[in-house]
Design a protein around this nucleic acid. Structure first.
Length: 148
DNA sequence: CGTTTGACTACGC
DNA sequence: CGCGTAGCCAAAC
């Protein structure tokens, strides 16, 4: 746990969680944030947005040699969040496609197929973390098209 | 030390 | 479903 909103602690935690993402799957900034307990004084609704930004900042500061799969973290829309056209964005897409992650014609990843469900409960409990909130799914496929 | 920018989201239209 | 706007924080200028 971490009482104060200390980025020095927050960042490594983000990277640690990112390392749990299996190859061929993707997570989102918001999802990772939802795994980390919000600091005191920050309401969960606010933290959801704040945390996402913090995670983004953390990923931006990701050490290159730590083996952190930074490419598996994308935004809630399912698309690469680095500015299009930058080398980083291109590299991220290349890395993901090499893992088997597919992009549609709108350059977006379908969370239904490649979305990450989060770390094992055992792992989460071991580190005192929360169960991630389900990733927002695009379109939303009706589970039972209720035919009548 | 004030300003601007950013690897975000939710919400309204 | 796509586009624009508001909110909030930390890091970079």
């Amino acid at each position: 746990m971490w009482n104060p909103p200390d980025p020095k602690t927050f960042n490594p935690m983000v990277w640690m969680i990112a390392k749990q993402i299996p190859e061929g799957q993707v997570s989102t900034y918001g999802q990772i944030a939802s795994i980390i307990p919000p600091p005191e004084g920050v309401a969960p609704p606010d933290y959801r947005r704040l945390g996402a930004r913090w995670v983004g900042t953390a990923m931006n500061a990701t050490p290159a040699n730590e083996g952190v799969p930074w490419q598996r973290v994308i935004n809630s829309k399912g698309e690469i969040s680095l500015p299009a056209g930058t080398p980083g964005a291109h590299q991220q897409r290349t890395l993901l496609e090499a893992e088997g992650v597919e992009f549609d014609d709108k350059d977006r990843v379908n969370f239904e197929h490649f979305g990450w469900d989060g770390p094992d409960e055992t792992w989460l409990k071991k580190h005192g973390l929360f169960t991630p909130r389900p990733i927002k799914k695009s379109g939303g496929k009706p589970q039972q098209p209720k035919l009548l």
